[in-house]
């Protein structure tokens, strides 16, 4: 991990926001905003994997889609290091960056067009990015299929002939086809069986080594991101509440929300006593977030200050940042990295 820390920055997200209007009445008057992503700033270094974790509705998928400009962000900047030059990623520049930034989607059952053959699915980004020669495209598809553990005999088949894991491999091959540097993985294994999850995660790791890829890995499952990430950002209600190396987050979490998430990881060892922290209540509505710290209604350590003043994300000398007023005084329980692997 220390190696990754030294790496050159590849992606620099500054205060990214995505608000959805809430409309009412015949004339669609905007009566409020759903703050799906509310000021996310983070950096990703070349060759590392940044895990983005949070429960449903915390804005992690919106964040991933905004990076790809599949959703137009409301505000903020996304800067991408394109061969040494910093380029702002926006609706105009994204066209030229499609071969640099690619995406792996969540649901392998709906991310492949059921009426297209596998070779055309994988070759599509190539065709859209200037590889006009069909034989050249199919040659590339053949080598990609081998790289993701499928064979050239699969080229002419349709998606419905494959299992979930195989489909996700096709999705990975498609993302790899244009030789990107950065891949945004939007919960790529959450729709798969646990046994297949491990295979796909290992494949992603191997491909990262082979092609020198950088991942932004969105997931709701801390045990999955631990396996693949170098650094982790924990999101809650559209904001990053804690960010740091895997060891920092797992061994010494500083945010009560991270602690609760960690305690929820199921342990395969039956002798380990469960000390689950059960969070009460639901995630508050992002349309009407609580005053002060957004987590305070569910936080067992909340004080008066938490109810009124919103904590900012502050980094310590080791690069471990947290947004909590009581981060210094609380001694939160982590888990042993390796125990849950």
């Amino acid at each position: 991990m220390a190696v990754a820390k030294k790496g050159e920055l590849l992606l620099d997200v500054r205060d990214l926001k995505k608000y959805y209007p809430i409309t009412k009445g015949l004339f669609r008057k905007t009566v409020g905003w759903v703050k799906a992503v509310d000021g996310v700033s983070l950096q990703v270094r070349k060759g590392e994997t940044l895990g983005v974790v949070g429960e449903s509705g915390c804005g992690k998928t919106t964040f991933g889609l905004s990076l790809m400009q599949l959703i137009e962000p409301t505000d903020g900047k996304i800067l991408y290091n394109h061969k040494g030059n910093w380029v702002e990623v926006n609706a105009k520049t994204i066209k030229g960056l499609r071969s640099e930034i690619q995406m792996i989607f969540q649901d392998p059952y709906s991310s492949l067009n059921p009426r297209m053959r596998v070779r055309d699915i994988i070759a599509e980004p190539l065709a859209a990015n200037g590889v006009t020669n069909r034989t050249e495209r199919y040659d590339r598809v053949e080598s990609l299929l081998k790289a993701v553990g499928l064979g050239s005999h699969h080229m002419k088949r349709y998606p419905h002939e494959f299992s979930g894991g195989q489909r996700q491999r096709i999705g990975i091959a498609r993302a790899l086809s244009v030789n990107p540097s950065l891949i945004v993985c939007d919960e790529p294994v959450s729709a798969l069986d646990v046994s297949v999850q491990a295979q796909v995660l290992n494949l992603l790791k191997d491909l990262q080594k082979e092609f020198g890829l950088t991942y932004v890995f969105v997931a709701h499952d801390l045990s999955v991101v631990q396996h693949i990430s170098d650094r982790i950002a924990v999101m809650y209600l559209g904001r990053v509440v804690e960010m740091g190396d895997v060891e920092q987050i797992y061994n010494a979490p500083k945010h009560p929300y991270t602690e609760a998430l960690l305690s929820a990881i199921p342990s395969p060892n039956p002798d380990v006593k469960d000390n689950k922290i059960i969070l009460t209540g639901d995630v508050p509505s992002p349309a009407n977030p609580p005053q002060g710290c957004a987590f305070h209604p569910r936080c067992p350590y909340a004080t008066e200050r938490c109810r009124t003043e919103r904590p900012e994300l502050v980094a310590d000398e080791n690069g471990h940042s947290v947004a909590c007023h009581r981060a210094e005084e609380l001694m939160l329980k982590g888990v042993d990295v390796g125990e849950t692997a």
Binding site: L65, S99, Q106, N113, E124
Partner: peptide
């Protein structure tokens, strides 16, 4: 709303091609 349309957009496919190749056949 299906992800393969999203995937085509992520691949940089133009709107007219998305409509003809992805949406209409389905």
């Amino acid at each position: 709303q299906d992800e393969y349309v999203m995937a085509a957009r992520a691949a940089g496919v133009s709107h007219i091609v998305i409509l003809i190749r992805h949406i209409l056949p389905n």
